[in-house]
């Protein structure tokens, strides 16, 4: 897509970078002067997607998480991707409360939050190649 404005980010898959990732997106969106609750929804969705890449995609292994974020006609498009292990069954992974790591206090709500807080969420994944999450949300009410 031909965005009016966009940025890309590559960072190490470390949980301490989750705050950096969602702040980068929210600071980028500041000039669009959107509502604080819309901004909070976007930050939450980014945090969920990045956490999934770090915890599930790489499972503690070294790697990078990529964010591409663009705006067109007051809609923000965010792509979060990794080169991690991929998702076996996307449909199952997206079910509310499903977690592949029940022993680690994961709520199993990552995709549910993304779907509830954003206008659209699409997931592509290839086993041992990685996962790509596309999300969009209108910055207007």
């Amino acid at each position: 897509m031909n965005f009016e404005n966009e940025f890309s980010l590559k960072f190490k898959a470390l949980s301490c970078n989750e705050g950096f990732a969602r702040m980068a997106v929210s600071v980028f969106l500041l000039p669009y002067d959107t509502y604080s609750d819309i901004m909070n929804d976007i930050k939450t969705a980014v945090s969920e997607a990045v956490t999934n890449s770090i915890i599930h995609g790489y499972e503690g292994m070294e790697g990078y998480v990529y964010i591409r974020c663009g705006v067109k006609d007051n809609v923000v498009y965010i792509e979060v991707s990794d080169n991690g292990c991929g998702i076996d069954d996307i449909k199952k992974a997206m079910e509310p409360l499903y977690t592949s790591k029940p022993s680690e206090e994961r709520s199993g709500l990552g995709f549910t939050v993304m779907e509830s807080f954003m206008d659209s969420v699409e997931v592509e994944s290839t086993k041992n190649k990685g996962t790509r999450v596309f999300m969009s949300k209108s910055l207007l009410r």
């Binding site: 939450t44 969920e48 994961r106 939050v113």
Partner: peptide, 13 residues
Amino acid sequence: DFMDSSGIGLVVG
């Protein structure tokens, strides 16, 4: 001032 679903897991635990 911010919480994602990890916080829900924490409270449920």
